[in-house]
Design a protein around this nucleic acid. Structure first.
Lengths: 180, 180
DNA sequence: CACCATATGGAGCCGCGGTTCCGCTTGTAA
DNA sequence: TTACAAGCGGAACCGCGGCTCCATATGGTG
């Protein structure tokens, strides 16, 4: 298990980069051959680095979750809990809207395990607890609601192309989560 | 274009019946061979009646929409507009929850054209107008919101098996649609 | 250098599932 | 009862796309 050879390390990066843009554009059913072509690499090389298409997809999903976790960290710095929560949701939704592959992933498989692993769930829980403490979020809301919301969001983004659709979805959901 | 032969008419029914339960159980990616087996019919016969898998799926989707349209008719008889709307949404959601194939259909392709054709959209619009008139539904809500909601619902039902998940989704969405 | 473990490319394999094809059966009308 | 158009069954076809395999190339080490 020694370190990767230099060219291998370089290729791994190129593959991830290529996969990111191919899957973002065309969704999770884009072909590995396209990724390989875009990375200027043979299919075999892709499979050397990621044993399976799913493994590659998972790696990308994990990257996105990490990115959103960083946004959650920033949100935790803010004073107004509801505003922080709301903006976090909007920012994540915007990221989704640019990445069909990620939307496919969250719309088709429950990703809550990944969200927990990378620490996102914990941070969101804290944010929600604060908003509930100052009475701006409905008392019965939980992180599971967020999972449910994201599943739906993925599908809306994928199915109805107009940005107005997912924006409306987020608006309604946030109003549903607000204290009445 | 004379009437179908008696046995053909019978088979057509069996195929629809079989397809309904196979796709409801296994989702839209169930195989035509399974449908044929369940209908006790050869694959060729399925293709004689429905030129394409998609055509078969479409026929089933249309049936479900017609069924929901009937529910909407019943809802229009009721006095309290919000209650009528809310219950209609709950009943449709319950139908979805029993039919993975339908969920796949609404989660993957925008079905608003079908909803309009079969008269569902018109009826829902009337119901919403009434609820808005007596101030129980948010003034900016439209039938497009319902489309967006159903897309998300399909995905939630498919992706998170526990009924609690889609029930929660509907709860949040309805609260989002209520006047604040 | 020389060597070899590591890495690469991409033609080809393989299973899957939608669809077609055609020899046979059956309902029906005369 | 016969004739034939309409209908049927299901083996086989075929394109697609994930994945494998191996002859070849290359980075790093002594």
């Amino acid at each position: 298990m020694r370190p990767l050879r230099a060219d291998a390390r370089r290729n791994r990066e190129r593959i991830l980069e290529a996969a990111k843009s191919v899957f973002a554009d065309q969704g999770a059913d884009a072909q590995i051959d396209d990724v390989a072509r875009r990375a200027k690499v043979g299919v075999g090389t892709v499979y050397r680095h990621f044993p399976t298409k799913d493994a590659l997809l998972d790696a990308l999903v994990r990257q996105r979750f990490d990115q959103i976790t960083q946004l959650a960290d920033a949100a935790l710095e803010r004073d107004d809990a509801w505003d922080a929560f709301r903006d976090l949701v909007w920012r994540s939704a915007e990221l989704n809207a640019l990445d069909r592959g990620f939307c496919d992933a969250i719309a088709h498989h429950d990703q809550s395990a990944v969200a927990v692993e990378c620490g996102l769930t914990g941070r969101v829980a804290e944010l929600m607890a604060r908003a509930q403490a100052d009475g701006t979020m409905r008392a019965d809301a939980s992180t599971e609601d967020i999972g449910v919301m994201m599943v739906g969001l993925g599908s809306v983004v994928r199915t109805i192309p107009a940005p107005a659709a997912w924006r409306r979805y987020v608006t309604l959901m946030l109003d549903g989560l607000r204290a009445s």
